[in-house]
């Protein structure tokens, strides 16, 4: 089979096309493109079928596991695919690791080191117990997230664009430093003992539930990493579609109840709105996929992300 690879502007990326045997898969094609172009390794490539000019439909993206024949539409001799360079890619675990490493390192710096001298505060700083607990709570949270990244999560996409690393690190690192600045401030005002205990207690329960949610999600995806969608079940997933986000948001609520900073609440609201967007999309997708028609199971009635509100 001769595969012609063009760019989106219609230029031929590889002169003369590529000769592949009839049983070749999309992955084989990607390897062949990589070999010829050197620069574009498979995860950098997005291959689609050409769309008729003027058509507003979204092009079909080629799945690397499928055979090329499935896209050839009966014509086994020729196939034209459109190539798009997605830019440099990094593994998802790398992206997550660097996102979480910032807050994990920055927060203790504000706790342990006399950084407030640079902001004009001289003299000794007396730490309240809540500030110490908050530091351990914070570090446990990000340590847990890094561990989950390497040992629990299964990613539906293998890679992410390199530019996301810079964007996401800016988000996590600056929010982390901003919150740490206030919680460890020499002029920090703590809440009463009971409020602190309720906040931290609730937060710890949510963090542990969050870990359990992640383990359930991992098992849902199965070891074959098929990437196919399934109805999330078990534990809190019987009530909420995205229980993993719910527990994540509520554990920040616990942290904020205990530490009471405006910065922490702002971070929580921003994070919650980002996760709500993802959750709405996932909920919609699951409801569409499991519509209860033609033998497909019906998606049960559930909260989306934030019971008892949404």
């Amino acid at each position: 089979m001769i595969v012609t690879v063009t760019t989106r502007s219609g230029r031929e990326l590889i002169k003369g096309g590529l000769e592949l045997n009839d049983s070749a898969t999309v992955a084989d094609l990607q390897e062949a493109i990589h070999k010829r172009t050197k620069k574009y390794y498979p995860s950098r490539q997005r291959l689609t079928l050409p769309i008729p000019s003027g058509s507003k439909e979204k092009p079909t993206v080629l799945n690397y596991k499928k055979s090329l024949k499935e896209y050839a539409d009966g014509n086994t001799n020729n196939l034209t695919v459109v190539f798009k360079d997605l830019g440099p890619q990094v593994k998802y675990s790398t992206l997550f690791f660097f996102e979480y490493l910032g807050p994990l390192i920055l927060y203790p710096i504000f706790y342990y080191y006399p950084v407030y001298q640079f902001f004009g505060y001289k003299g000794e700083r007396v730490m309240y117990p809540v500030q110490t607990y908050a530091m351990y709570y914070w570090c446990f949270h990000y340590f847990k997230r890094i561990m989950e990244t390497f040992f629990v999560h299964r990613f539906s996409h293998a890679t992410s664009p390199l530019s996301n690393v810079f964007r996401n690190c800016l988000y996590y690192w600056s929010f982390g430093a901003w919150i740490a600045y206030y919680v460890n401030h020499p002029l920090y005002t703590p809440v009463n003992d009971l409020q602190m205990k309720i906040g931290l207690g609730f937060g710890v329960v949510c963090q542990i539930s969050n870990l359990y949610c992640h383990i359930l999600l991992r098992n849902l995806r199965g070891s074959d990493a098929s990437g196919g969608y399934q109805i999330p079940r078990g534990f809190l997933f019987n009530i909420v579609t995205c229980a993993n986000y719910t527990t994540e948001i509520y554990q920040w609520l616990g942290f904020n109840v205990a530490t009471q900073t405006v910065a922490g609440y702002i971070f929580m609201v921003v994070a919650a709105s980002i996760m709500t967007n993802w959750a709405l999309a996932k909920h919609r997708r699951l409801k569409k996929l499991f519509d209860g028609k033609e033998g497909r199971p019906k998606y049960p009635r559930r909260w989306v992300i934030l019971p008892p509100f949404l």
């Binding site: 206030y182 002029l187 920090y188 530490t259 009471q260 900073t261 405006v262 910065a263």
Partner: peptide, 9 residues
């Protein structure tokens, strides 16, 4: 300015 109940500046 700090200090205040909501730990904000």
């Amino acid at each position: 300015r700090m200090p205040n109940k909501w730990n904000f500046s």
